[in-house]
Computed example of a mutant assay.
Amino acid sequence: MTGSPPDGLRMLAVPTGPAALDVLPDLEQALSGGHPVLPYAASAPAPAVPDHDPATLPDGLAVVVGTSGSTGTPKRALLTAAALRASARATHARLGGAGQWLLALPAHHVAGLQVLLRSLDAGTAPLAMDLTDGFRPQAFVAATTGFVPGARRYTSLVPTQLLRVLDHPGGTEALCGFDAVLVGGAAMPPRLRVRAERAGVPVVSTYGMSESAGGCVYDGVALACTEVAFDEDWRIHLGGATIAHGYLARPDLSAQAFGTDDDGVRWFRTDDVGHTDPRGRLRVDGRVDDLVTTGGLKVAPRLVEEAILEHVPGVRDVVVVGSPDPEWGEAVCALLVLEPGAVHDVTAADLRARLRDVLPDHALPRRSLTVPEVPTRGPGKPDRRAVAALFTVG
C-alpha cells in the first residue's frame, strides 16, 4: 500500500469503497507523529514527488494532500497533525459531539480523507459505502444499515450525490437518519437545500479546501478555530489553527498564498470572492478566475446560477461561464440540465425574460445549451473549463 521517498514522506495508495478503511492504520500513525503520508487514488499511478529539502517541511507534518487543481497543475498542501485534529474537534463540537461517519467520497481527496481522520481522532469506527461502480444511491442507502445503534451519524456528500439520494426510493428516509449531512465540494443550489430541509434532512453547507484542512465554515459561520476576513477586492482570507503550512516544493506559491500575522495566526489567501449577508454569515460569490467580465462589468456566475434555479421552471442543474464575445468581451453563458420529462427546451431568450427583474441587465445570459448532465472533475465539482469549451465557436 505504501512506498517511501528518501525523506520518509510515504506514498499512500487509497482504494475506493470499503477497502479505503485499510489505510486507517497508516493515517493513525501519521496523526500520532509517524511518517507523513501523501494519499493518492490506488487506481492511478503514484504521483511523482517533486524534489524538496526535508528540512523545509513543518514540524508535525501528517498529510500532504492535493488540491483540486482547478486553476492548473494541482498543488500539495502541507497539513500538520495539529491542524487536522483542530479541524476534527471543531467539527464535532459544531455538530453536537463525536459520532460514527459514513465514507461516500474518494478518501484521497480532503473531504473524504477528513471522514477517516475525524473518526480516528474521535476513536470511532467509520463505515464506507461500495463505490465499485461509482456513487450509486442504492449503495448509499444500504451502507446506512451498518451504523452502531445509538451512535450519532454523520456523512459528507457533494450536491450531486445529495440530489441522487433524494431522488432514490428510500433515500430520504436514509438521509433523515443522520444527525448531520455535510454538503460541500461545490455550491449547494438553494432549491436543493430547501427540498432537503423540507424532507427533514439535517443538511449542513460547508466551505473550505485542502489548504484549510477541508470545511472550516459551516452554514456561513466559521468553526471555533477559524477566522474569515476580506481584502479590498472582497477576496476571502481564512485564518486559524487548520491552515496548511504551504505547498510541497513550491515556496513561490506558498509565499503568495500563506502568511502569519502579528498575533501568530496563520492565514490563507483563497481564490474566492464573497461577502457577509445581513445575518453576518459568509456568502461565497465564486472564484476570482470564474468571474465573467462582460461590457466592462464583472458577473459572479454563482449568483446567476442561483437565480436560474430559483426563478426558471424546469431547470434541474446549471453552470454559468464566460465565453469570448467580439462585442462584449465575454458573454454570460448558461449550461442547463432540465428536469426529467421536460418537454420544452429553455433558451437564452427564456432565461433573459424570466430573470430580467431579478438580475442586472449585464448579468443576463446571452447563450445557453442543454445537456444531459454537467461535466464534473474531482469530487463532484463542475468542470468549468469543459463547460466553457462547449460554448467555444470554431
Results as ranks from 00 to 15, higher is better:
Met11Leu: 15
Arg384Thr: 06
Pro74Lys: 04
Ser70Gln: 11
Ala388Pro: 13
Arg302Ala: 15
Val284Asn: 05
Glu197Thr: 15
Ala180His: 02
Phe178Val: 04
Val204Arg: 01
Tyr40Ala: 02
Val65Asp: 01
His108Phe: 12
Gly378Lys: 02
Pro169Ala: 07
Val23Arg: 02
Thr276Pro: 04
Asp383Met: 14
Arg10Val: 07
Val320Trp: 03
Thr270Arg: 05
Ala30His: 02
Asp133Lys: 15
Ala386Gln: 14
Thr155Val: 11
Gly17Arg: 00
Thr2His: 08
Val65Thr: 04
Tyr218Trp: 11
Ala353Cys: 09
Pro202Gln: 05
Thr276Trp: 10
Gly3Ser: 15
Gly177Asn: 08
Ala334Val: 14
Ala107Gly: 08
Asp261Pro: 12
Leu117Phe: 02
Asp233Ile: 06
Gly146Arg: 12
Ala55Leu: 13
Ser210Phe: 04
Arg85Cys: 03
Tyr218Val: 02
Ser210Lys: 04
Ala224Tyr: 08
Gly259Asn: 09
Gly295Arg: 08
Val49His: 01
Pro106Lys: 01
Val165Tyr: 05
Val265Gly: 08
Glu232Pro: 06
Asp233Leu: 09
Ala186Leu: 11
Arg283Leu: 14
Gly72Asn: 09
Pro382Trp: 03
Gly274Arg: 00
Gly280Tyr: 06
Leu131Ala: 13
His35Phe: 10
Phe230Leu: 12
Gln161Gly: 09
Val337Thr: 15
Ala93Gln: 12
Leu166Thr: 13
Arg385Gln: 13
Ala186Glu: 05
Leu163Ser: 10
Gly134Ala: 11
Ala174His: 03
Pro360His: 12
Trp267Phe: 11
Thr242Arg: 04
Asp51Phe: 10
Arg193Met: 08
Gln100Thr: 01
Pro149Glu: 06
Gly246Asp: 02
Tyr40Asp: 01
Thr172Ala: 12
Val374Cys: 07
Gly60Ser: 07
Gly286Ala: 14
Met188Cys: 11
Val304His: 02
Ala222Cys: 12
Glu373Phe: 13
Asp22Tyr: 03
Ala363Arg: 04
Val204Thr: 07
Arg191His: 11
Val203Cys: 07
Ser156Met: 14
Val49Leu: 09
Leu113Glu: 00
Arg191Asn: 06
Tyr40Glu: 01
Ser368Gly: 06
